[in-house]
């Protein structure tokens, strides 16, 4: 009945069997909290984000933090070696994680990371794309949809302009990036289902 945590936001996939469920959860929480704070600090630097109402800032971050982390930590997924490096630095093969109970989400995240990495985006392009991921007017609980929509459109225009300037002969890159948004939604939904299973367990 050994329990494993297959999320790379943990320091390790192995759980000390002597720890209580509460202790395991607290340890996990301490592991991902710094990353979440970094997402918030990133959001605060998006021009216009702080002008949104505070409830809408919270709603966007609540809904989008997982997707931002998927983009930011795509490099943890080594597609060539089929391994994942956890935040604590430990590396696991896909087969090992599968044996520990990882399901379809793992494969889907590998696919996503591979496609995103293959686009070869610069740090600036990746940052702007991440801002577009976060500022989505169709997240649940948004009060002032028009304001979020206006900021979203500004960010998308800036992303298109940057991609067009940097990749004049690769016009499909911008379209491919926008198509990553529904992929991220799908991963987010799968992740929420896994969290439910974890909490129930």
């Amino acid at each position: 009945n050994r329990m494993h945590l297959v999320c790379p936001m943990n320091t390790s996939a192995h759980v000390d069997p002597h720890k209580s469920g509460h202790e395991v959860w607290e340890e996990f929480s301490q592991s991902f909290t710094p990353a979440v704070r970094e997402v918030v600090e990133f959001a605060k630097k998006i021009p216009g984000f702080r002008d949104l109402s505070q409830p809408d800032q919270v709603s966007l971050l609540k809904a989008g933090t997982f997707e931002v982390l998927v983009v930011r930590f795509a490099s943890l997924f080594d597609v060539r070696d089929r391994t994942i490096t956890f935040l604590g630095g430990k590396k696991y093969s896909v087969d090992t994680l599968r044996a520990m109970g990882a399901g379809d989400l793992l494969n889907s995240m590998f696919d996503f990371s591979e496609k995103l990495t293959n686009l070869g985006l610069s740090e600036e392009e990746m940052s702007l794309f991440t801002a577009v991921v976060l500022v989505s007017a169709d997240r649940s609980g948004i009060e002032n949809v028009n304001s979020v929509e206006a900021l979203q459109e500004t960010l998308i225009r800036a992303l298109r302009s940057l991609i067009t300037k940097n990749h004049p002969n690769e016009s499909a890159i911008f379209t491919k990036l926008l198509l990553k948004l529904p992929d991220l939604r799908s991963l987010n939904n799968m992740h929420s289902e896994q969290l439910l299973a974890f909490k129930v367990h």
Partner: peptide, 27 residues
């Protein structure tokens, strides 16, 4: 389970970070 962020304690972390309060999350 319509609000996984709240279940994870994310909302608490997000609110504190947004308000510039980077103290450790209190139980």
């Amino acid at each position: 389970f319509s609000d996984p962020a709240s279940n994870l304690g994310l909302e608490d972390i997000i609110r504190k970070a947004l308000m510039g309060n980077l103290e450790e999350r209190q139980e």
